[in-house]
Nucleic acid binder design. Sequence first.
DNA 1: GATGGGTAGATGCAATTGCATTGACCTAGA
DNA 2: TCTAGGTCAATGCAATTGCATCTACCCATC
Lengths: 144, 144
Amino acid sequence: MTKKPDEATVAAWIGLSRAQRVAMARVEARLKAEGLPPLAWYDALWELEKAGEQGLRPYELERAMLFEQYNLSRLAERLCRAGLIERDACPHDRRGRVLKISEAGRAMRRRMWDTYSEAIEEAVGAKFSLAEARSLAALLRKLE
Amino acid sequence: MTKKPDEATVAAWIGLSRAQRVAMARVEARLKAEGLPPLAWYDALWELEKAGEQGLRPYELERAMLFEQYNLSRLAERLCRAGLIERDACPHDRRGRVLKISEAGRAMRRRMWDTYSEAIEEAVGAKFSLAEARSLAALLRKLE
DNA sequence: GATGGGTAGATGCAATTGCATTGACCTAGA
DNA sequence: TCTAGGTCAATGCAATTGCATCTACCCATC
């Protein structure tokens, strides 16, 4: 039989799923209450904003966001329909696309951040001291 | 303006979503590879097994699992169709139901645990010392 | 310059989830 | 007892996700 997890590992696993679901639900609820789009939109817009002028290929964004290929394809379509990104043909690879954030996209990202950041503070910041938050972030980084 | 999160808080938040998604994806993939049902089934079966003889009302299971009411209603229906639980009328409240795990349900839960526990060990246990796992679990508990 | 194997992205279809609402019942208070 | 307001669970419908597959294209090799 392969190695089994000890108590602490199981507790960490359970804590991870529950904590994430609780925190995520609070943050998403906050965005929805303001009539804003879901978090995935923010993530995509932020990655594209960071990428700057030359944008990102869908497969790059897909990896940055840990999204499935088909989900990213559809998310991009929705963002495009909403006018928040542009989806051009790729000059170097005719199979491909290049995704770029639009002005409206930048505005939406900023607007979402106002609410999102408050929600993060409430859901996470308020529960921890600075040292605890650092410690948690460091531990979580080891999981990837 | 309401209080904004500091760097460490944002890092903890991002770490939380990414770590959870990575770990969850690995564990779910493992179950799927063995032809087993998704994790939510395990959670439900485990809660019902812990509840023992008298079972649980759907709304109790819903709270234990942090599920939406309509999702739990449908999950219960699927589990029932698969023969893993029983869904009886509730004697004390004629609106309600009582969910109980079946023998097949207990067998399935055990079978899933063989794979699930290995996956937890790989996805979480292998990344941490005992002290780290304890520390992570303790920090995550503060989030709820 | 053909071709086989691989990568990028899209999409049809089925399953699941989210949302709003319903129907049935419970319970506290007039 | 009757009723108003609430809770429990289910469900119609729309949106999203998962899965499998498709088309178009790239590229290394012959």
